[in-house]
Design a binder for these strands. Sequence first.
DNA 1: TGAATAGTGTCTATAAGACAATATCCC
DNA 2: GGGATATTGTCTTATAGACACTATTCA
Lengths: 248, 248
Amino acid sequence: MSDKRQSEREFLASYDASQFDRPSVAVDVVILGAFAGALHAILVKRTEHPGLNAWAVPGGFVRMDESLDAAAARILSDKAGLEGVFLEQLYTFGAPDRDPRTRVIAVAYYALVDEARFQGIDTSDQLVAAARLDVPWPGETGGPVQCVNADGEPMPIAFDHEDILGLAVKRVRGRLNYSPVGFQLLPDQFTLRDLQEVHETVSGVGVNKDSFRRRMLASGTLEATGERQRDVGHRPAELYRFIRRSAV
Amino acid sequence: MSDKRQSEREFLASYDASQFDRPSVAVDVVILGAFAGALHAILVKRTEHPGLNAWAVPGGFVRMDESLDAAAARILSDKAGLEGVFLEQLYTFGAPDRDPRTRVIAVAYYALVDEARFQGIDTSDQLVAAARLDVPWPGETGGPVQCVNADGEPMPIAFDHEDILGLAVKRVRGRLNYSPVGFQLLPDQFTLRDLQEVHETVSGVGVNKDSFRRRMLASGTLEATGERQRDVGHRPAELYRFIRRSAV
DNA sequence: TGAATAGTGTCTATAAGACAATATCCC
DNA sequence: GGGATATTGTCTTATAGACACTATTCA
């Protein structure tokens, strides 16, 4: 044991950082959009073993000098070209055999983006694709989710990424109840119906229209812009904007 | 790039697991109890630099062949002698400079135990102590919490562990609203008043007694045992028990 | 004018807060 | 009996769901 009276400086200089085996640490980012009646996620095709040709959540190894949040933001930018979107840590997956190569601990994040940004992600090289999520459980039960491509065909998922996607869905559903998460999935201006559709898409169940309107308007997080929809073939709805809660 | 046509077996055999620098991964476990009108946590005294003589959340490095959950259970058993208690992952802390020795990513867990088990933890060697948590923010605002010892004196906290403790408090407060978390902090049998006191201790605010009783009895998670308190100096209250929800 | 959806008003059912009255134990 | 808390019942208020009705736009 070291001499307790030595200074902290001396101790740090003599510390042997390599004395333990260390796992690899990866950061995976679930990029979620809510539109067309379903949740969607961005997946990347694996071009290497293990799981060659299966689809995975975008990720990468954390660098020694960057925080986990910074690693997630870097992956979001590099793999999807997204900046400044909602990004939050989800869960850390650490089963010893989740990656057959070596011990990899994955810190999962999830990002929420509006439809325009989601659809704007470059998928032209066939190695990045949007997947529609098929959630086989109600409410916040939890569990893996299935992914289908634009043609409705199931997509094979690599590693434990079905579980990561499932947990992201569970988390977003949970946040709906007490947090203005819907705004992250919408553009700056939106109608109350847009907001309701996002809530229904995320939760998977329909809500009462009148009650939803009242609740949202009473929440104090919405602000009418004074503008209205255009060219909609029916009475145009008022456009609203999210107010950042200044007082917490 | 590797030849995509090689088999997965061949690829795994040739994979070089040591090609990247890897951070150390630790698991820290916040052990929480709710009694005497405050939340309490178990802390251990640091006997090494950095943070010599400061107090830290019990933790240890994850082994290469154990899951994160297993590492947390091992730490809970080794440091506090606790088995079979509620244990859940909290958050992963990964700031590059959170430990001055080397890059250490900490996967934080929190455990909830009833008062008898909490008080039963061996603190006789002066290296383990119970801390009363002083939460300086309302509701689920979040932020660091202060720790005071049995004599009411502030305890210096090592690393970013004030933040870990603060996040554990925030998480437990959040779970109160939609999850039977109070039961984890109580023994098998308890009165409605016991349950109310735990809720008030965790949340930091008083609740309406009548409404609380009705809500709990209507929740379907409580079962009357038919037994009553003994030797209490007033009308004894009925004892209840938690029913595990069989149907989800 | 008609189709379609936006937005308002009202009634009812449910849950929460407040408060009073009664019950039951130990001393 | 007195002190203390448990338990029940009722009234009031706030919110959610249901439904009817009016408003506004484009084709």
